[in-house]
Amino acid sequence: MSDDAPPGPADGVLGRLVTLWALLGGGLLAGIVAVNLWAVIGGAVGIPFAGDFELTEMGTAVAVFTFLPYCQLTRQNVTAEIFTARASPRLVAWLSAVGSALAVVFGAVLLWRMSAGLMDQRSYGYATTILQIPVWWAFVPILISLGMLCLAAIATLRNDIDGGR
């Protein structure tokens, strides 16, 4: 948000894919809104819906993960520029490259670890309280999000390195 570097390659195939993925996450958020509306209105007219709580938790988590690649590709993660306000554009580009590299590592490590998490969730049979939805279902779109986060971070990294030359 406060990044002065030129926006990353938000168009192109990756850009469109990442944007579409975030929009799908927004659609999911709209679904959560609908579930909560149903819970309130349904509760008032005597057709209550007991699973709103767990659907909200699960849906929000999945939606937030779909936002991460978009956040990275469009460089929305806040930085404090105050100390580097007078630094040369080259230095700034290299510092920014460090940030992108970290995002690549973060995405990759989390992809690896949450894959293991998915296996745990499956083998132990973790499920939600009322609707008994297997928790590992939520991990599938999350892993896709993390893969896309890696790709998005690689794209911003290349962009930074170009700027540092």
Partner: peptide
């Protein structure tokens, strides 16, 4: 590494935080 298996999911699925994306939207 073991904690990272579920930490992010746990954090992002906190019910009371779900107001954040909704209020932003």
């Amino acid at each position: 590494l073991n904690q990272l298996k579920t930490l992010a999911y746990g954090q992002f699925s906190i019910y009371d935080l779900s107001v954040v994306p909704m209020f932003i939207l």
